[in-house]
Every structure is written in structure tokens, then in C-alpha cells.
Design a binder for these strands. Structure first.
Lengths: 189, 189
DNA sequence: ATTATCTATAGATCTATAGATAATGC
DNA sequence: ATTATCTATAGATCTATAGATAATGC
């Protein structure tokens, strides 16, 4: 149809948005391309006009989610209150909205099983967040904190959020979030 | 065939062992029943003689893995050196053997998307480990540490292991493990 | 006689491709 | 004229079931 150039981009963006959300909410293997395309208001046939494969879609979806998360973080991070940042991550709202939440908590363990290229995309687009976290921690603590140390803090946050999501009992899940907040503050102070 | 009673149990055990390993290594959704049965030396047709559904198999596989992990932990935990315990968890060996490793690190985020009954199995068979960890931490720190606090420590360990598994670069992955060890010791002391 | 296992298959879904259709730019 | 979209389909795989076969206990 040779639509206006922005039409194609807009469609691509819609597919990516749907994919990011569905992958994070239900898992990568559990979401078919037909479902992604339907969510974007299209049929499966069009998929390969926009992406080379499901793996290529995944890489772009991860990149998108991670970059968006990073942008949101650097907006709030400078001068932010530690407890506020941690409580935002380990909140019941974040727990209950995995589709639009942290890609690390939602997908890290599944991405670990994907090809190196996908892991590289994940890792390299998570790195800016780790660096921002490390710089923030460094200035708070008054001594150098490295990227890997930031990864341990993010690991604590994401791992605890996963346990809270897996808990079938609401009160127990809330208690895990609360304990995670205490632990993260303790670790970051 | 009405085999000896132990034959049936042995077959069931073989299926469960294969399922536990394959689920943890490749993810639940990514592993079909045909693959599990083939790994156990059987064909798909026999599956439903032993289990009601894939979900029922998953529940039993989780239960098995979690109980086994718990048994191994309580053997080594009393009087164990903190750093040694943490280093065993965040070791390159554990990172590279997800199939036989910690079910929390391998499957928590995927289990979180499964039915309540499955989450309940996961949570209730993880609880003894959390209680043992909490008791150990309590005696080490000389003050009461709750189950949720133990969950935060396990969250740190599992989340960090996931990030190390997702990292495409070996050196970076090792650095994450090392930072995780420092963080876990800091948190548990 | 019982029952664990096998082969075979139903029916749904998966990723990916082929070819027709239609909406736009030139 | 170009190309994004559609319908249709290939070929593989998924969970689950049906019915035949064969290995055991009584």
C-alpha cells in the first residue's frame, strides 16, 4: 500500500508494545505471534513484513522495555529518596502489573535460555540502568560502587518481586515485599 | 502388565526426574510431554497413566525439586560458614547447571503465571527452606529473623543468579556472582 | 485378569511462507 | 507501481485420548 512512512513505523511500534506487554505478562514461549498481532489489531500474515522472526521481535521488545524503564528511572533517580525508589519497585501495584513492569523481574530467567544475541541485547540495554544505579549508590555511600554491585541490588529487587508474585497468599506476598524493602535499604545504605 | 508395585513407582520417579530437570533447564512452556517421556525412556501415550495433566506433573516435579533442595540444605546448614553457603549458591557451577539447581532461580517467575494450586505447591514446599534459613539467620544474628526476611535473602540469591545466567559475557557473569556473594554476606550479617 | 506400554490420531496451536487484495505515492 | 495487509496453508508440535499389545500376578 505504500502508506506514509510514519504509518509503517506506527504499526511496528504497536506490535512491539503488544509483544512487550504479552511476553512480560505470560512469558515468551507462552505467547504466539497470532496473539501478538491480534493485540496490535492485525493478522499473523503481516508479521514478517515487520520482523524477521519471533526472536528478532523479542530482541526489539526487550530493547524497548529496557530503554523505557531506564528513561523513567533516570528521570526520578537524581536526588531521590532511597526508600521511595525501593518501595515503588516492591509495591503491590508493580507486583500486579508484570506486563508493564520491570523486564528483568518478568523475563531474566527466560532470556537466560535464549540465544547469545538475545542475551546480549538484554544485557547491553540493562547496563545503562545498572550504571545509573551504581552512580547513584556511589554518591549516596560516598564510595565507588560498580556495575556488578548494582546488579546484585537489582537481583534482590527482581528476585524478591518474583517470590511475591509466586506467593498464592496475599498477606504473605505483601510481607515478602515489605521484607524486600527492608533488605534493599539495608543493602543500599 | 501389572508389574511389581515398585516398577510403577520407579517409572513415575523417572518421569518426575526428567520433568524437573527439563523444566528447570528449558522452561515449563518450552518442554513438551513427548520430550519428558522420551527422556524417561517411554512414549507419550503412557503419560496419562501416571499423571492427570501436565499441570499435575509440574506440581509434583516442583514439590520433588524443592523438597530435595531443602533436604540438601538442612544437611549442610547447621553450623555452616556463611560465605561457604553463599558461594555454593552463587557459583559458576550452579549458574551452568540450572537443570539440577535451585528451582526458585529457574522457575519462580514462570510459576508466578500458573494457576493458584501450582503456586501453592511451590510456595508451601519452599516454606521449609525459608524457615530453615530464617532460623539459621536468627541464631547467627542473635535476633529474630522472619520467613519473609529469609525470602528477601533467597530473592537476592536467585535474582542475582538469573542475571549471571542471562549475561552473555563470561567475565561479566562471574563479576555479578562475586558481587552477589558480597551483597548476600552483607545482608545476612 | 489386569494394566503399563505402545502406536495412532484428534484437534488445537505454533512459526513461517505464498499468493491475492487493496490502499497509497508518483 | 509499490507494498502493507489479508486469507490460506504447510509442516511441526502441543496436550490429550482411544484402542491394541504385551508383561506380569493370581
Amino acid at each position: 500500500m505504500r502508506y506514509a512512512p510514519e504509518h509503517n513505523d506506527a504499526t511496528r511500534e504497536r506490535i512491539l508494545e503488544a509483544a512487550s506487554r504479552l511476553f512480560q505478562e505470560h512469558g515468551i514461549a507462552a505467547v504466539g505471534l497470532a496473539k501478538v498481532m491480534a493485540e496490535a489489531g492485525l493478522t499473523v500474515g503481516t508479521f514478517y513484513t515487520h520482523f524477521e522472526s519471533k526472536e528478532a521481535l523479542l530482541q526489539e521488545a526487550l530493547l524497548r522495555s529496557l530503554d523505557a524503564r531506564h528513561e523513567a528511572l533516570v528521570q526520578t533517580l537524581p536526588g531521590a529518596d532511597l526508600e521511595r525508589v525501593v518501595r515503588a519497585y516492591l509495591s503491590p501495584e508493580h507486583r500486579d502489573a508484570s506486563g508493564t513492569g520491570c523486564p528483568v523481574a518478568a523475563l531474566a530467567s527466560e532470556v537466560a535460555r535464549h540465544p547469545r544475541a538475545t542475551r546480549h541485547t538484554f544485557s547491553s540495554h540493562n547496563a545503562p540502568t545498572l550504571d545509573a544505579l551504581a552512580a547513584w549508590l556511589s554518591s549516596r555511600r560516598g564510595k565507588k560502587v560498580g556495575r556488578a554491585d548494582a546488579a546484585a541490588l537489582l537481583g534482590l529487587l527482581a528476585g524478591t518481586l518474583q517470590l511475591a508474585r509466586a506467593a498464592p497468599d496475599r498477606a504473605e506476598s505483601d510481607a515478602i515485599l515489605e521484607a524486600g524493602v527492608r533488605a534493599a535499604i539495608r543493602l543500599a545504605t
